[in-house]
Computed example of a mutant assay.
Amino acid sequence: MMDAEWYVYNYWNFDQECYNMLETIIQEADSGSKERLFQWLSDRLDHSNQELSQAISNLWNGSFDEPHYWERKLVISERLAEDSRMNGRSIIDGENEWAILHLQLLKQMGASTADLLSYARRFWDEPKIRSFMAVVESENQEFDKAEAILRESLVLDLASKVWLTRHHLMLKKIFHQSSQLDSYREELLILLKDFLPGDNTLIQELKTEVSEAEWRSLRRDMIERVPDYGLQASLYCEEEMWEELSNVVFRTNDIHLLRKYDLILIDRYQEQVLEKYSELLREMARTTSNRGYYREIAEFISYVSRLPGGWPIAGELLELFQRTYRNRRAMMDELRRVIQD
């Protein structure tokens, strides 16, 4: 036991190997030793160090599944959940995990939904508790009750975008399960517009629920809301929206993004592609003084020379850089390699 105690109280050195070792000891212990281990862990559950408390509670919760432990775990989890609520603190990640564990134990022991809800109401200010009960109601096919809990949660958790996102995802799920297709589509649109713009799974879901004409009327707004221009470009490319793709690529001043899509765009926008390469390479040359970047510039010039209509632009850049930066020996070395090739 002293060895186990040393492992736990040195949590900063308590890596996964040590955790697995303790877990194995518990699993392979005889009934008497396992009982003593249960009691030893139970006495240390409410440790003031949050990381230690989580490690101990994970072992305690995950390693004693036999029914004869359930009643004692129920009593302990109820006490710790109440202590957490009264002290104004939660055990793990800002949430009262003991209240959740208590609900899970009650459910495992066959408690009625009414009894689960009665206990959950004591912690109703916590979004995870309400989310748990929404799942329970949904599992019972009580979709109206699940929706009511989630609608209430949208108001109570207005300040948390993370929880609002989770609630809308759950609403989407229950509307799909209950075949409320209009509400299901509405939740998809809310999620894509306000919470998870550009999420490919949601986009594919929406595309299967609307006509092609309706999707075409929606997709521009959906993609414009995506904050990441790389993802925007990917979505425009997938949708074959070439003008929108070109606008993103030419606006972002990212030479690697330009390289990714230049062969797709060059047939339609040859002049703009080559001009953008010229602009970005001039800026790179002006602002860098590192051989690695010089090599990259030289490689890009070589690449541009092989694009349709690209040799004149590449030649202009070589001449300009050799004249302007002739005192940068490393750059001249890299440019000579392009000329030799």
Rank of each mutant, 00 (worst) to 15 (best):
S84I: 01
R85C: 07
L258Q: 01
V155F: 04
Q39L: 12
S160N: 13
Q39Y: 10
Y69M: 11
L37S: 01
T165M: 02
K161W: 13
P312C: 04
S63W: 04
N10D: 15
G110F: 01
L320H: 14
G88C: 04
I203D: 00
A29G: 02
N13M: 13
M222S: 04
E334K: 02
L181K: 15
H167M: 15
L117N: 08
E139A: 13
E212S: 12
M1W: 12
S179N: 14
N49I: 10
S53W: 01
F14N: 05
S160F: 14
L181S: 13
W6R: 11
R328D: 08
L105R: 06
Y294R: 07
A134F: 11
Y184C: 09
A29N: 05
G292V: 08
I174S: 00
I339P: 03
F64Q: 01
R306L: 09
R328M: 07
G292K: 14
E283G: 09
Q54V: 08
T252P: 00
A314G: 11
R291Y: 04
L171F: 00
L158E: 08
I203W: 00
L274S: 04
E137S: 08
S246W: 02
Y184V: 06
E334S: 03
P312A: 03
L307Y: 00
W242V: 12
E142S: 15
E214S: 10
A213T: 08
S112L: 08
D93E: 14
L245R: 07
Y261A: 03
R337F: 09
F175Q: 05
K193S: 09
R36D: 07
E240K: 14
L274D: 00
S31W: 04
R306H: 12
R216A: 12
E152S: 14
A330K: 05
F132W: 09
I339Y: 11
K34F: 05
T113H: 08
I25C: 05
R328F: 04
N20S: 11
L37W: 06
R295S: 05
Q104G: 14
Q204N: 12
I129Y: 02
S302T: 09
L263S: 14
E17D: 12
R44P: 07
R306N: 09
S246A: 15
K145S: 05
V338I: 11
S153L: 13
N49F: 06
R329G: 05
Y236M: 03
L188S: 10
K172W: 02
E152C: 12
S33F: 07
I266W: 01
S305W: 01
S183Y: 14
I297N: 06
Y9H: 07
L335T: 09
P197V: 10
R122F: 05
R259N: 13
I190L: 01
L74A: 09
R328S: 06
I76S: 00
E139D: 08
L52R: 15
Y261D: 09
R291F: 10
E239R: 02
R36Q: 12
L206V: 00
L196K: 07
R36H: 09
R36G: 05
Y261P: 08
R295P: 03
G292N: 05
S57R: 11
F321K: 07
S305M: 15
G32P: 08
N247V: 14
L164A: 10
L105T: 10
E152R: 04
S246P: 09
E35L: 11
L320C: 07
D30R: 08
L154W: 01
